[in-house]
Amino acid sequence: MSTVEDQGDDRTDSVVEIELTVRNAGYPFVGVSGEEGCRVELAEIIPRPEARYAEFFNVLGAPPARIKHHTDSYETVETSLLREYDDGGLFEFVVSGNCPAHRLAELGALPRTVEGVNGQGRIVAEIPLRYDPSAVTESFFAEYPDFDLIAKRTKDTHTSMLTPSTFPRSLLNDLTDRQREVLRTAFEMGYYEWPRDCTGRDVADELDITSATFSEHVFTAERKILTVMFGSADGTRPPDVGSDE
């Protein structure tokens, strides 16, 4: 593990951004990119029940069928093709166990970029200062010693998981009234902040519905939005997916 940049800042609204690299093919986003000589880019990561995460990846430069063949060999990954492009597709990877992005999120770091290119993995994550960035990175490297830290820098911005600009009117029109109500309530209560200001149960109680009903509505709505955002009717690749800017 090596550090090439480390700058401090005491402002409470700052975050520490860390950049990590890895070449271990045991991680699907690294292994698939190496096997196919392609690019695997994280578009979004969403918590799921039972300590699992849904990770939406754009895979560019390889036939979708071959990607599914490779990911099926990983016991901790369930793969679904959501949209096919001319040179790849949008996939949902539901992961449990041995997922570095998942573990960073559990420790308090928000993964902003997760990508694999020709067998080289890269993760960029933001750590709010209240989580003690040094403690977060130490805990992460204790579990994932195969990663290298190549940059660590302080930024003055804090990015929420979802913002109002994420929901253009054309996307909202695809949702039912109940799905819009659930998403709006969850957003206003801080469900999509990082870290979350409330749980799914809190939102369900506010709406006077069960947690299972909340999960059903929010997961269906998220899938609709993500499919429209990261795919297009003509099968072309959406622009600028996977950027950490």
Rank of each mutant, 00 (worst) to 15 (best):
D6L: 13
R11N: 15
T12I: 13
V15R: 05
V16Q: 14
V16A: 06
V16N: 07
I18K: 03
E19G: 09
E19S: 15
L20W: 05
T21Q: 13
N24S: 13
F29P: 00
F29D: 09
F29L: 13
G31W: 08
E35D: 12
E35I: 09
E36C: 11
G37Q: 02
G37K: 00
L42H: 01
I45E: 13
R48C: 09
R48N: 07
R48M: 14
P49R: 06
P49D: 04
A51M: 08
A51T: 06
F56L: 11
F57I: 02
N58A: 14
A62R: 05
R66D: 14
K68C: 10
H69C: 07
H70N: 07
H70P: 00
T71V: 15
T71G: 08
E75T: 07
T79N: 12
S80W: 08
L82C: 05
R83N: 09
E84I: 01
D86N: 04
L90P: 03
V94N: 04
V94K: 11
V94R: 13
V95F: 01
G97S: 05
N98E: 13
N98A: 15
C99G: 11
A101K: 04
A101H: 06
H102Y: 11
R103L: 12
L104Y: 03
P111Q: 04
T113N: 10
V114M: 13
E115D: 08
N118R: 12
N118L: 08
G119P: 06
G121C: 11
I123P: 09
V124S: 05
R130N: 08
D132E: 13
P133M: 01
T137V: 15
E138K: 12
E138Q: 14
E138V: 02
S139A: 15
F140M: 05
E143F: 01
P145Y: 07
P145C: 08
P145V: 09
I150L: 09
A151G: 05
K152N: 07
T154G: 00
D156G: 15
T159A: 02
S160I: 06
T163A: 03
P164Q: 04
F167E: 03
F167S: 04
S170N: 13
L172E: 06
L172S: 05
D174A: 11
T176M: 07
T176I: 08
D177Q: 12
Q179T: 10
L183I: 12
T185E: 06
M189L: 01
M189C: 00
G190T: 01
Y191E: 01
Y191H: 06
Y192G: 00
E193S: 11
W194H: 13
D197T: 00
G200V: 03
G200R: 04
A204P: 05
D208A: 15
I209S: 07
F214L: 11
S215R: 10
K224Q: 12
L226C: 02
M229Q: 13
S232P: 06
S232T: 10
D234G: 00
D234N: 15
T236H: 07
T236D: 11
R237C: 03
P239Y: 09
D240Q: 06
G242R: 00
